[in-house]
Design a protein around this nucleic acid. Sequence first.
DNA 1: CTACCGCAGCAATACGTTTTGCACGCGGGC
DNA 2: GCCCGCGTGCAAAACGTATTGCTGCGGTAG
Lengths: 345, 345
Amino acid sequence: MRAPQGEAVTVVAVRRRVGITDVAAKAGVSVTTVSHVLSSRRPVSQATRNRVLKVIEELDYRPNELARSMRAQRTFTIALIVPDITDPFGASVARGLQDAVRPASYHCLVASTDAERDVERDILHRLLTRVDGVVLSGSGNTPEELEPVIDARLPLVLLGADTPGPGFDVVTGADHDSGALATKHLLERGHRRIAVITAPTDFGAPARRVEGYRDALTEAGLPADPALVVSAPVTRDGGAYAMAALMDLPDRPEAVICGDDVVAIGAVGAAAGRGLSVPADVAVMGFGDHEAAALVTPKLTTMALPSREHGRAAGELILERIRETEPGEPRRIVIPAVLVQRDSA
Amino acid sequence: MRAPQGEAVTVVAVRRRVGITDVAAKAGVSVTTVSHVLSSRRPVSQATRNRVLKVIEELDYRPNELARSMRAQRTFTIALIVPDITDPFGASVARGLQDAVRPASYHCLVASTDAERDVERDILHRLLTRVDGVVLSGSGNTPEELEPVIDARLPLVLLGADTPGPGFDVVTGADHDSGALATKHLLERGHRRIAVITAPTDFGAPARRVEGYRDALTEAGLPADPALVVSAPVTRDGGAYAMAALMDLPDRPEAVICGDDVVAIGAVGAAAGRGLSVPADVAVMGFGDHEAAALVTPKLTTMALPSREHGRAAGELILERIRETEPGEPRRIVIPAVLVQRDSA
DNA sequence: CTACCGCAGCAATACGTTTTGCACGCGGGC
DNA sequence: GCCCGCGTGCAAAACGTATTGCTGCGGTAG
């Protein structure tokens, strides 16, 4: 019953992977016909189609995607290269990317580089012939590193890129605006002396946020006191020290915007250590909306970076590029941060 | 200078992807020779080798991995399927997996299923012909869902699997032991009445931890009061409510072990709300060592789940399976949790 | 001097699909 | 009654690589 064929051997042995040829043979048609019932690129009689489908079912045939990709010159795979997938931003981006491309039956290959240039280059090279597009995040992506990608005519989207000039597709946060938005929120709550604790770099996203902060102040007709902008490592302790310094100022600020939630948490701790209560004595805002932001006391008011949106946007952009026939103008997608009001401001 | 050849046409046009054939032609040898230069599977004279390498350099030739995979019947890709890559556990596992397989030149394809069974099945099916192995985490992986994978003779490793019986490779946490370990730590600090707040399930990892807790108590000659084991949703509020209930007990516990850091943070909050100080009045332990654990006040003493290790172990196991010629006995790798002492206990 | 052995390289085949040029037969319109 | 067109299916080529049987050549040992 299981084996109508003549073979009486009962040892099952290693069952070879079933290919389209096996299906064709068992259904008594050519491989072309099988392919056509699968792809519907040419009409096939109902009778034949049914027969083929039945055999496919029986044999549990699944087309070899590899061969398919090779033939079509399309892998249906997008590579995501991030400094560290463990970092919440990287993970969310990965998720957003998956969300965007899965409906189109694309997969995601993800790799972590630890921001090491040669690792990044190595991975990039080995991936080039395996994927239909690349989303690259973080690390100092210099144009020359990117050269092999564009050279391979592979769609490429940069995430939050600073260095490479125009000519690239980019998805980035609205850094200037988020800095301004945070500042305005504090202004609306009546604060006038507003300080900033930022990362110790004078370029990139942190710098642009500080600029937004200054512009918001200026727009409100307020002076931007340079003493109120301090920099600190992006750690809890960094935030604590910087906050302590601010609180020691003769004319202590009424509110402080921190470049990261972790920093903000350190700042809140430092304030508490001096008997200052948040937000009654001093308001504190964070950036990023980490998991911890909603867990600490007081719950942190913060600017959420919709990182999943970043990933989704990148995915959609890549998909568009893949579908395009003509290269088209480089695009730049800017994603605004959103204010999450909680208890610290 | 750039083009010694006769072609005077300056229009660059679309440069075709350079293949091994182009290299062979330009070097004046056969494709076989080029392949041998690359693979060293047969000796090639130094002169020829140099000439070929030079041409490869000039043409910036990179072998098409797809064709290579097809020929070798090996994709050098491992699939990781998790409920959500955004979840810190999933992300760490991904990272560990990458760490493990990258030295062997393997890539990682990651997919999130949101724990939806049909999404999982769909992804699994579409991946089967594209990868050399699968690491599957979370979701109720029923054996029948796994059938296509084992049917395809694909190495498969289950992460923290509960349901499927033996016959599968599994990497899992030492749940029973970690429960016992946490309990012993509190016993050593002199606590006698120890409570547990656990997830509302009576199977899987949470249940096994509770068992470990009971056994540790018994071993210490202490009674296991059923009233001290309460269940709560794995949220901040869940922890808070459960803690409140425990604190209302006539004979209030001196210490409580929470099934998750988030729950522990809620518990600490509830204690503070009743004027109880942690750890002076009541000790609290968490599970998981989330980012937030080190950020809250007091810093949480917790059992860290080395999730990156889980991923790494799974990767190494898969690699072994791939290299094996004979199937071999199913293996089970158990990874202990580690105690992270901070300030809450 | 001859036979044998090893080195270098070539041509052909396989991997599993999809696509395309062709052939065959049948029915309808002129 | 003939021709055209359409519906249906087949054989062969292509995607880009790795492998393998073979050939010719030169050197060495017997």
